[in-house]
Structures are given as C-alpha cells and as structure tokens.
Design a binder for these strands. Structure first.
Lengths: 110, 110
DNA sequence: CAAGTATATGAGTATATGCGCATATAAATT
DNA sequence: AATTTATATGCGCATATACTCATATACTTG
C-alpha cells in the first residue's frame, strides 16, 4: 500500500463538514437514541426533550449528510442510522476522551 | 460487556466539542501536515498557505483540545499529533465518505 | 370535504467563530 | 540594551448556525 496522498481542498471540506454535522450535542443525542433502533420524530422529540421544530431541523441536517436514513410511513416519518461507521466513530472519540481524562486525573493526583 | 449507558449531557458536549475542533478545513490541513511528523509554526504556515496569525489561532484551538502537543525550543514552537486516535478517526471518516460517493456514483450511472 | 395529527419550514434573533490587521510577547544575537 | 526573529493575541467584521414561534404541508379519518 502506498502512503496516503494528502487530501484535496474539496475533500478536506467534505471531511470538515462531516465532523461539523456531528458537532452539536442535540444531534449526538438523536444519534444516540437511534443506536437503539429506528424511531419516528415524535419518539425522538420525547427521547431528547427538544422542541419538535428543532428536532426536525436537526434530523434534516443529519439526513442531508447521509448520516441518517428517512422512511415515511403514513403520517409518520421514521429515522435510522444510515452510516455504520458512526458506531466506531463514537467509540473512538469516547475512548480518546476517557484516556484524556485519565491523564488529567493523574496530573491532578500529583 | 454490558450495553453502553447513554452519555450524560456533559459528556455529549465534550464529544460535540471534539468534533467541532475537527470541523474546520484549515485545522484538518494542519493535522494532515503533522501526520508527517512534528513541525514548527513557520513550516506549518508554509505547508498550509495560511496566514501566520490564523495558523497560530488554529494551533491554539487544537492544542487546548489536546489534539496537538506543543513543544517550545528557543524561538520556535513545535507541534505534533497528541491524540493517536486521530489516525483511525480520519481513516474512518474518509472511508465512509468514499463509500457514500461510490453509492452516489452508482445512482448516477443508472 | 372538514378536522385532526405528524412533520417540515419560513422568519427573526442571538451567539459563535473564522479571518485579517495590527501589535504584543518571548527568546536569540549583536 | 537594541535589534531581529518566531509566535501569540486583542479587536473588529462578516458569516454561519442553533433556537423559537408561528404557520405550512402531508396524510388520515370522520
């Protein structure tokens, strides 16, 4: 395997955009709720404690980014995780933050 | 292993913050440059084509988030990757985006 | 077709943040 | 100590985006 070539400006913007989509606590809450399985908007509103309008907007953002999938069934709209890499992604970040805190705790203990 | 408990609000904010730090193209360019190894500010300015002031600010953001490490040597300041999870993180996101494009290409081909 | 229910969206406001310019700080050199 | 070099930072502007309120749209049911 050859060394990875540096990403183009356009590619960097896409990667940055992907991270930006994941950089809001409410969107992470939605994703976390959907880790349990597909849910409709009302259920997500209740699960997260947000307003319907705000949740709807965040769902739009996540769906446009292909992070979530949208399925309409009658009056209701069901959302689900569309990007399987999300699981590992969240694990990675959580693990990294835990290590960071562990180090911080050590330095406090000194 | 027990099922993961949902993250607290505080934890979600930290995770969101981590993603936010990675959501700027210029910061990703810096990280990409540093994947090659430790570099000082001037080298990073040249490598990325940014202004010195702007690069310095981004380096501050990344260092405060413990994504980068800072080492001062005389007049120069050297930065390096402090969080090893960054490699996998970027790989994951790039891979996910590639798959997304592959699907999009298919749908265009139809 | 009228009324009700689930979801989406337009408009306005508040806040955050990236960038450039100028300048400040810190350390080496003369 | 004065000057030069490397890096950091205060400030202001422009833009992005999260949130709320009100209303629109889509679908179902009587």
């Amino acid at each position: 395997m050859a060394r990875k070539a540096p990403l183009s400006d356009a590619a960097l913007e896409l990667v940055a955009r992907r991270f930006a989509v994941l950089s809001e606590p409410m969107r992470l809450r939605l994703i976390q709720a959907l880790f349990e399985g597909e849910m409709n908007v009302n259920a997500l509103v209740e699960a997260t404690g947000g307003t319907q309008a705000n949740i709807s907007r965040h769902l739009q953002t996540l769906t446009q980014a292909h992070v979530l999938a949208r399925r309409k069934e009658g009056l209701q709209v069901f959302y689900s995780i569309a990007d399987p890499s999300l699981y590992k992604l969240c694990e990675l970040v959580c693990g990294s933050l835990e290590k960071q805190f562990a180090r911080h705790a050590e330095s406090l203990a000194k």
